[in-house]
Amino acid sequence: MIGVIVLFEFEDLDNYYLVKIFGDFDVLNSGEIKNKILEKVSDVVSKDLVIDLTNVSYIDSSGLGVLIGLHKQCKLNGRRLKLFGLNKQLEELFSLTSLDKILNIYNTFEDAIKKEE
């Protein structure tokens, strides 16, 4: 087999799960990323899920679909999906689709994990 396709890294930390996604997040890998994340966190999401998009340059409708699905899964379990590290184009995409009003988007990792009052 050629090449190891690193889709994401997962860390199970004290108060949250941290997921770093790499490369384009699109129709070619979104299903696999979703399944692998759900394998790790199980259907009963017991902590907030923080997703680092710093290394993601592009997201299409299937990538957005996965994020919306994870957001719902977290919400069902009283947890939150938090995103940070969006580049300018991703910011525009989330604004255009109004997902910035639904999803929890932060500028930095520190902002995302900060305990809210």
Partner: peptide
């Protein structure tokens, strides 16, 4: 079908 139904920015 994939190209017709997918959304891209």
């Amino acid at each position: 079908e994939l190209l017709g139904h997918m959304r891209e920015s």
